[in-house]
């Protein structure tokens, strides 16, 4: 009785190993089912998801105008102090003084891509870009100014 049980055990064990080996051989011979992406080589064809949160950017139109009113909602919403809004005084055509943004400083090194600033913005001035290759040689390059130099606020955005 012991011998029969022993042989059965051995048979069961060898069978279980062969079943697993069969699965491995299946993938060895079916190359089409391999789904690995060869990342640095497929850079030209790589398409990121449209909602992918890579970094915060401020879109400008062709006249170099943005939609940021400088309300600081993004600065308040940010948990890490990633965004700083710096103001300047501008003269309107009527000669009145008007507050406008000078720089919108964005610290990429502090950002966790939580999307709270984009959600908080009432005028859709900032959005998330799909870039993800952020490595640079010096830390200071990660501090970015989002508005282009010489840019103005778009007409009709309050």
């Amino acid at each position: 009785m012991f011998i029969i049980k022993y042989i059965k055990e051995v048979y069961r064990g060898v069978k279980s190993l062969l079943v697993g080996m069969k699965r491995t051989l299946y993938y060895f011979t079916h190359h089409k089912e391999i789904i690995t992406q060869e990342y640095p080589d497929n850079r030209d064809t790589l398409v990121m998801a449209e909602r992918f949160k890579g970094e915060v950017v401020m879109p400008h139109n062709e006249k170099n105008e943005h939609r940021c009113t400088g309300c600081q909602a993004c600065e308040l919403a940010c948990p890490n102090g990633t965004i700083k809004v710096i103001f300047k005084n501008e003269l309107t055509p009527e000669g009145k003084k008007k507050k406008a943004i000078d720089k919108l400083v964005y610290h990429l090194e502090l950002c966790t891509m939580c999307n709270l600033c984009v959600e908080a913005c009432p005028s859709d001035a900032i959005k998330m870009a799909q870039t993800f290759e952020h490595s640079v040689y010096d830390r200071s390059e990660l501090t970015k100014i989002l508005n282009n130099p010489g840019s103005k606020i778009m007409d009709g955005v309050e």
Partner: peptide
């Protein structure tokens, strides 16, 4: 990939907000 498409991130999504979901 499903998460990336809807929530915008693969591991740390931050998709739930008080009152519902973000998008």
């Amino acid at each position: 990939d499903i998460m990336e498409e809807t929530c915008g991130a693969r591991l740390t999504m931050n998709y739930m907000v008080p009152g519902g979901v973000m998008q």
